[in-house]
């Protein structure tokens, strides 16, 4: 286990550094999209953890938006340190996730999806009415600083990209190790048979809450990153179609991947950027068809493709054996 941890950490570090170097040679408009992908990929990563338990949240925008607003509002008070803001957003959304998770852990399937949706729509409604928080027009977010270092114009986006890369890298390592841990392995079998888990002495409710808190924390971090990179946040981050978008990407990614969460986000963002530009009246149709085809031909998403190629026999994580 220890060597696994070390190998994964080293691998992630190498990948992060490689990407950071690569980022220096990429034009800025791609870099911005890359930063968005890292931020949204974190939300998707959290949803993947839930999808492993066969839970789909149509309200993940709630934590995403909460993280973004925590980051934005604190930055307006003059605190602009990216590390501190990200930590605060993570903490805040974890607390919200814990409180709501206590209630939500009793729900499954469509009811889980819809309860989450209702909660995120309440936040949306409250934000629209909060004129002091900018109402529907939203609030601006100050440019982040890094432990006292304030990059100027040209460097700002690149430095942020490296920061986001580090955060995403660390979160991915954590998520990967978590899925290989006892808790993580137990969680993956919630979807197969809850009663068997209870019989083994594990609390399904506790497992769900635990994963839910991780997912909401990741969504909160993603929200904080989005707030910092775009410099402006709006209540629409909590609107149900934002959450629907995340679910879309999660399905594309499949439950079992870490890198695929970011890969699927990149695919989604690319389609939207290119198609949105060239065919404004039919890009939704393209996305919809893409979703249908990927559900049809890649039941386990992008992650499923790679697994099948590498390991024909289902491994310990239980590569989504189609038993439903």
């Amino acid at each position: 286990m220890l060597s696994l941890q070390r190998n994964v950490a080293l691998g992630a570090l190498a990948l992060t550094i490689a990407l950071a170097v690569l980022g220096a040679f990429v034009p800025e408009w791609i870099l911005y999209t890359c930063a968005l992908v890292l931020a949204k990929g974190l939300v998707v990563l959290g949803l993947c953890l839930l999808l492993r338990m066969n839970l789909v949240s149509f309200g993940q925008g709630l934590y995403y938006c909460a993280g973004a607003y925590i980051c934005g509002l604190v930055s307006q008070m003059g605190i602009s340190d990216a590390f501190f803001l990200t930590f605060l957003a993570a903490l805040g959304s974890a607390v919200v996730g814990l409180i709501l998770g206590l209630f939500l852990s009793g729900y499954r399937s469509v009811f889980f999806a819809m309860f989450n949706l209702a909660l995120s729509m309440i936040l949306y409604g409250v934000l629209l009415k909060s004129i002091s928080l900018g109402g529907s027009d939203g609030v601006g977010v100050a440019a982040p600083t890094y432990l006292g270092y304030a990059p100027d114009g040209e460097m700002r986006l690149y430095v942020f990209f490296v920061f986001a890369l580090a955060v995403a890298g660390a979160s991915s390592v954590f998520a990967f190790l978590y899925t290989k841990s006892e808790m993580g392995l137990a969680s993956a079998s919630v979807k197969d048979c809850e009663i068997r888990l209870e019989y083994l002495g594990l609390s399904v409710r506790y497992l769900i809450i635990f994963n839910f808190v991780i997912a909401s924390t990741l969504a909160g971090i993603g929200g904080a990153l989005v707030a910092m990179v775009s410099g402006h946040i709006i209540p629409e981050l909590a609107y149900w179609t934002t959450s629907g978008e995340f679910v879309f990407i999660t399905v594309l990614s499949g439950p079992n991947g870490i890198l695929s969460a970011f890969g699927a986000t990149a695919v989604f963002e690319t389609i939207r950027l290119v198609a949105g530009q060239n065919m404004p009246n039919s890009w939704q149709m393209l996305l919809g068809s893409f979703l249908l085809l990927s559900i049809l031909f890649m039941p386990n998403g992008i992650s499923g493709l790679f697994r099948r190629a590498k390991a024909p026999k289902p491994d310990a994580v239980g590569e989504g054996i189609n038993n439903d």
């Binding site: 911005y32 402006h232 939207r272």
Partner: peptide
């Protein structure tokens, strides 16, 4: 060059950068 404004603030920033830089 015509661009659609739908999609919210984050998407608009993305498209704005794309217009300017690409």
């Amino acid at each position: 060059i015509k661009v659609d404004e739908t999609g919210g603030a984050q998407v608009q920033i993305q498209r704005f950068r794309d217009l300017v830089q690409r």
